[in-house]
Each structure stands twice: as structure tokens, then as C-alpha cells.
Design a protein around this nucleic acid. Structure first.
Lengths: 112, 112
DNA sequence: TGAACAGGTTACCAGCCGGTAACCTTCTTG
DNA sequence: CAAGAAGGTTACCGGCTGGTAACCTGTTCA
């Protein structure tokens, strides 16, 4: 059976958007641009998100292959999150989207 | 009070993504690329979406300013939807996103 | 010995989102 | 005069998403 993008499950753009769908994902994404970040850094730097939800969003990004999670054993515990190659390839597109939003939507703030 | 993108409400990328969030919106969007389409055309050409949901998604796109709705009076009733300038400016970004998905996600189908 | 820290996990809940199915209105045509 | 076509609208529902708050585990340090 051949699929087309009418099969919404297989529509490339929709699948891509679903990987980014989530209230905090764009912000997380942009926070990972400079390089790996610890969980606690992200939690401190992104206000008003709960631990649980931040973790959920990170795990979803991981499940989508956009973000890699690394556990460094030792004490204190250290877990870092960073963009994968796949995630990094998405970065320029997100930057263009950000730019589009800034020029076409009022009252919106550029991310980086 | 100054906002930053940390105020998730004002994060440009997030707002942009929220305009595209919706199960059928990417497909609708790509169907509008060639030009204005009637409601019934869209409904015929996009399988498995109900009238109600298709209409909801179109109205949300309209509310976000990406799509313009035009009523042509006469009989039979004719209502057409087309991309606005704002929506058209988004098109190349969506095409790049589509391309990204095709190269990085397995089993996904290019939209156009 | 017990507080602090990192990174989670658990229970629970409200609101939104997409879904089905039936119905409505206006005008035209057989 | 009944049927059909276009573009909706209405009632109702289940599941997902984001939210709060409390709790857990293992190690170090005062």
C-alpha cells in the first residue's frame, strides 16, 4: 500500500511539526543552540515551567531524535541534553520561522 | 514591562508554531499553494476529515491571518479560501521543513 | 545524623482538540 | 413540490496535554 501525504500520519510537514509541538519545546530548543546543558540549568533558565513538564518535553524531543540525553556518572549526578545532528539541521529553519514571526506578528519577541 | 521569549506567550517561534498547530493545517496549507480553493473542493480533496473539523482548521488559519476567506454571493453559494501575503511568506519555510522531514524521518511522504 | 543537591517520579486534575452524526438554510432544477 | 447542492452549525464525547504538589534515591558535607 502506497501512502500519500493525505494519510495525515505520513505527511512529512505534519510529522515535523508534531516533533516541535509542545508548549516549551521551541524555548528548550533555542536554549540548546549554544551547546549541551544540564537539566538543572535548563530548569533555572526557563522560568515558570515545572520540573515534570520540562522533563516531559525533553523526553519527547529525545524520542523524536532531536535531542540527545547523556548521563555522566559521578557525584553530584549530572545529565546533559544537547541537539543531535538531526536537531541541529532543523535550527536554521527554526531561525527563519522566528524571523518570519517577528516580521509578521505583532507583540512577539525574537528568540535569539 | 518588557517581555522576553521566556514569556512563552511572546516567544516568536512558539506563536508561529501555534498558528500551524492542528492536525490538518499543513495539508490544507499545501492545498492552497496553487491558488484559491472552494470549501467543497478542499473537503473532496482531503480525505478522512469531517466538514466540521475542516471548517475549524480553516477558521483558525483565518484567525491567524494566514488564510483569507471570501464569500462570492450568487447561487450556488461559493466560498473560497486562499493564502494571505503573510501565509504565502511562510510557504518557503514550510517547504524547507518538509524537505528536512523527508531527509531525516523515515516513512514520511513529501507533500508537493 | 541530618540537611542539601541533582534528577527524577507519582497522583491527580481541568481544559482543549479532534472525532461522529444529525441537522439547517437558501436557491435551483426536473 | 421534492430533491439536491453549498456551506455551514449543533450536541455530545474520549483522550491527550499541561498543570500543581508531594515524594524518592543516592552521595557528600557540616
Amino acid at each position: 500500500m502506497r501512502h500519500t501525504y493525505h494519510d495525515v500520519e505520513f505527511c512529512a510537514t505534519r510529522v515535523a511539526l508534531s516533533l516541535l509541538a509542545g508548549k516549551w519545546k521551541p524555548i528548550i530548543f533555542f536554549h540548546l543552540f549554544p551547546g549541551p546543558r544540564r537539566f538543572s540549568e535548563l530548569w533555572r533558565d526557563i522560568p515558570r515551567v515545572s520540573k515534570k513538564v520540562l522533563l516531559e518535553q525533553l523526553r519527547q524531543l529525545e524520542a523524536g531524535g532531536l535531542v540527545a540525553r547523556t548521563v555522566h556518572n559521578g557525584f553530584p549526578p549530572e545529565v546533559t541534553y544537547e541537539l543531535s545532528a538531526k536537531g541541529a539541521a532543523l535550527a536554521p529553519i527554526l531561525r527563519r520561522l522566528d524571523q518570519w514571526a517577528v516580521t509578521h506578528i505583532e507583540g512577539v519577541v525574537q528568540i535569539s
